[in-house]
Amino acid sequence: MAPMKHTLVALVEDKPGVLNRVANLFRRRGFNIDSITVGHSEKPDISRMTIVVDGSGASVEQVRKQLDKLIETVKVQDITSESIVVREMALIKVKATSATRSEIMQIVDIFRANIVDVSMESLIIEVTGDEEKLDSLLNLLRTFEIKEVVRTGRIAMTRGSTTTSEPGRKPISAED
């Protein structure tokens, strides 16, 4: 199987050191994390991680199992092949003079992004969308000189009424 980007969702106990355990596992097993985002879930004591990894199906399945094996992991799902909503946010500080400001604002409008800070020489643009949208906005803004970028990494959720955090036994393995 050819390597491709996989999106894993991990629900973990909200305890100190859990992120360290997850990060350590990826390092130890030689997996590169493309992005990882961590935050609260709908349950107060469970954190939700969205992890994007590059790899073949078999190797990602192995990392999913290793992740599941951590005692504080409640559930791990590879939702790559499911119908999902994927979002990422970025803040982009771009050079803007009186000559270029209006052109930049037009681009921002087209991307349904927001300007959240204005100064004499720069703007901060807030944009939300999938990676492709963010990439193309960044490409367009490059002509104006990008001064600073921060991206959150991917968050994802399956479409429809099913949820990742539904109760039930941890999935043991894909095969059985």
Binding site: E61, Q62, K65, Q66, D68, K69, I172, E175, D176
Partner: peptide, 16 residues
Amino acid sequence: DPAEIGKNVRVDVPIV
């Protein structure tokens, strides 16, 4: 240990 299944060799019938 489910993580041992398929780690080193391909397996035809895994039983956890």
